[in-house]
């Protein structure tokens, strides 16, 4: 019988993978084995959720050394006789996916937004062409590595798991972590907001953010942004980026201010129920995917909206 191995460095994502594995195993009958690396509390948590957990504890293993992590996971795959590996498609999980796939000769699909066991295959959906389209794919090789986007599955619960120790050999690492800095915490979850007010590079200055925040407050919504506003201008945190390399959002209402509508952005907002586009360019691409189109300067529209809502 085949087996599914799951692994994520992050507790919440590991629980989501357990749900994904259970959904697959429900039709395939595969055995599910959860792996943890140098993380006893995660092992306890997964076992409490009903998983059969296998632990690697090795002080020589540097988590930042993706190649070494992949080698350890490859040994676990071997020992567990797993042929399907589910990883989390957060940044480090995604690079681990490529490295592990190469190490075990597996086909690999990352950033999976939806998966389903069908005719003995695992059909995966992911964005393609920068988000302009959705590809449906499956892996044909015997071994498969699938990295699943966060929040695709809800966290698993259950009971009656177990914990078993695994031994792996670890080579000395060529990578040394000199420093770990916590990023400034922005605990906002824009992907859970019902109303989103998002700004793009049409915003003139950081000072103008104040009125955008005021509008969002008045509407009971959250402020979000296009990627350049966070990564280039650094006016907002990366937590607030909508899109391919940001969050997938499904609000009831999204008000998009000064955003041109390139696919890498729109992929993160196309599931919104209602979309409003405010853009000074009447031919902006974003207008084609909006329910309401207002061709105007956002710096005039936003104060008007605020005073009308007063």
């Amino acid at each position: 019988m085949a087996g599914i191995m799951i692994y994520s460095a992050k507790d919440n994502l590991a629980l989501e993978l357990l749900s994904a594995a259970r959904a697959l195993a429900a039709t395939s009958g595969d055995e599910i084995k959860a792996l943890t690396v140098n993380n006893d509390s995660q092992a306890q948590m997964l076992s409490a959720a009903g998983a059969d957990v296998y632990t690697i504890n090795s002080s020589g293993l540097v988590p930042a050394d993706i190649g070494a992590m992949a080698d350890s996971l490859a040994q676990a795959v071997q020992q567990m006789a797993a042929n399907v590996v589910l990883l989390s498609s957060d940044r480090s999980g995604k690079e681990l996916a490529g490295s592990l796939a190469q190490a075990i000769g597996a086909g690999c699909i990352t950033d999976v937004l939806d998966l389903q066991g069908k005719d003995g295959r695992i059909e995966c959906r992911r964005n393609a062409l920068g988000g302009a389209a959705i590809a449906t794919q499956y892996i044909e090789s015997d071994r498969q590595v699938i990295a699943i986007a966060p929040k695709t599955f809800s966290a698993a619960s259950g009971q009656g798991g177990s914990v078993t120790e695994l031994q792996v050999s670890v080579k000395p690492s060529s990578i040394k972590v000199l420093e770990v800095k916590e990023k400034d915490k922005d605990s906002v979850n824009i992907d859970e907001a019902d109303i989103i007010v998002a700004v793009g590079q049409g915003l003139n200055s950081k000072e103008d953010l104040a009125m955008v925040e005021e509008l969002a407050n008045k509407l009971g919504g959250q402020v979000a942004c296009s990627k350049p506003v966070a990564t280039d201008k650094k006016w907002l945190s990366e937590e607030r980026v909508i899109g391919l390399s940001g969050k997938q959002c499904k609000p009831d209402l999204a008000i998009l201010l000064g955003i041109s509508g390139q696919v890498q952005f729109t992929v993160g907002i196309r599931d919104a129920k209602t979309i409003v586009a405010v853009n000074s360019d009447e031919n902006a691409v974003i207008n084609q995917m909006a329910d309401y189109v207002l061709t105007a300067d956002l710096h005039e529209v936003v104060p008007e909206l605020i005073s009308l809502l007063a």
């Binding site: 086909g107 393609a128 062409l129 959705i134 449906t136 499956y138 892996i139 196309r270 909006a290």
Partner: peptide
């Protein structure tokens, strides 16, 4: 190793009012 079944644009019918 990866087989692509199809690549399709998501359906979208926005009102564009």
């Amino acid at each position: 190793q990866v087989v692509t079944i199809d690549i399709l644009a998501p359906e979208s019918n926005r009102k564009q009012i």
